[in-house]
Design a protein around this nucleic acid. Structure first.
Length: 317
RNA sequence: GGCGCCAUAGCCAAGAGGUAAGGCAGAGGUCUGCAACACCUUCAUCACCAGUUCAAAUCUGGUUGGCGCCU
């Protein structure tokens, strides 16, 4: 019998957090955050992290569990999320995966196998160097020789992915294109419901803009300064987060404050668009358009609950 | 009222006789160990009218709009 799993995602600033609390309380669920930034401590305002009061007693997992200089990536997310899942099932609760990192959700939902092709920092550095010296086409050519299919799928300028494909081959002796094709065929081991909360583009963008203003009012700049004082610098992956990288650039004199705020809004809008593109191509997604519910969150959650009940019945069969 | 300058996509902007660079924004897309990352695609006939010319965004005249100076 497949265990139940509810996913509640959507572009940044649609209102996932508050909907997830409402849903969790209604189904007696626990929340697993699928967010690449909220895992980090001290990054509260900029990551729009839920506060302890806002949790209203609903247990949350994968929030505030790492320091900003610790590594975090899909594989780690997958491991930690699976551990959290076990506990939730043991307690007889329903897990709700809430967050906007589509890649993480995919990794968990389809239990994608990352055991092969472990990362090799040395090799990455070497390939990076090679690309800088000889150009992207030359690096892409290398990939073409070992895995032409992957080479066709990955644009030569996408150096990061080209490097990963080569790395995969060097680590395993097999082609990443074959591995990906195989993993793509997977069916989920969960009895799941994949909700994507969405809104009209214009409204979403307006919400993003005002949310960034709110973050500034709440003291995002102070938060970033504190992180900087603690020694968390710009090279960290965590500090590449929206709001953090721009403000750190401002502190280094590369932007005026006004420009930095503008850039945060801009980058966040771009991000939201990319998230939507991602969810569009995911399978078995249930789109939930806020405008179709007259922006009534209670009604939205109500409709989700209907499906949850049906899922539970299906689970008993 | 007179004189001068300007007028290219939503914005910035190249172009000065040979059939519209580029950037930003927007839209669409890719993504299977950095994913709040990285990457790709796409988007105008040059204010308007009339002329000159084989050929005009580029030259001439006029119209409209804007800017500056002068009385």
């Amino acid at each position: 019998m497949k265990p139940p799993l509810i996913i509640l995602t959507g572009p940044t600033a649609v209102g996932k957090t508050s909907a997830s609390i409402r849903l969790a309380k209604a189904v007696g669920g626990e929340i697993i955050s699928a967010d690449s930034m909220q895992v980090y401590r001290y990054m509260d305002i900029g990551s729009a992290k839920i506060s302890p009061e806002e949790m209203e007693g609903v247990p949350h997992h994968l929030i505030d569990v790492l320091l900003p200089n610790e590594e975090f990536h899909v594989v780690k997310f997958q491991q930690m999320a699976k551990e959290a899942l076990e506990g939730i099932y043991r307690r007889g609760h329903i897990p709700i995966v809430a967050g906007g990192t589509g890649f993480y959700i995919q990794a968990l939902l389809y239990d994608i196998d990352f055991s092969l092709g472990r990362e090799n920092p040395g090799l990455r550095k070497e390939l990076e160097h090679f690309a800088r010296e000889n150009g992207n086409p030359a690096l892409h050519q290398k990939l073409m020789e070992i895995d032409p299919e992957a080479a066709r799928q990955i644009h030569a300028n996408n150096r990061k992915r080209v490097i990963r494909a080569i790395e995969f081959y060097c680590q395993t002796g097999s082609k990443i294109s074959e591995h990906n094709a195989r993993e793509h065929e997977r069916t989920s081991p969960y009895n799941f419901l994949y909700f994507v909360l969405n809104d009209e583009r214009n409204r979403l963008y307006a919400r993003i803009n005002s949310r960034v203003d709110e973050m500034m009012e709440k003291g995002l700049l102070g938060e970033v300064k504190r992180l900087k004082e603690m020694g968390y610098g710009r090279s960290l992956v965590s500090m590449q987060g929206l709001g953090y990288k721009e403000l750190l650039a401002y502190l280094d004199g590369e932007y005026t404050l006004e420009e930095a705020v503008c850039a945060i809004k801009q980058h966040t809008r771009h991000f939201a668009k990319r998230q939507i593109t991602w969810f569009k191509r995911e399978r078995d997604v249930i789109w939930t358009e806020k405008q179709e519910y007259a922006y009534d969150e209670a009604a939205i959650v109500e409709s989700m609950l209907c499906l949850v009940k049906r899922m539970e019945e299906k689970g008993k069969e």
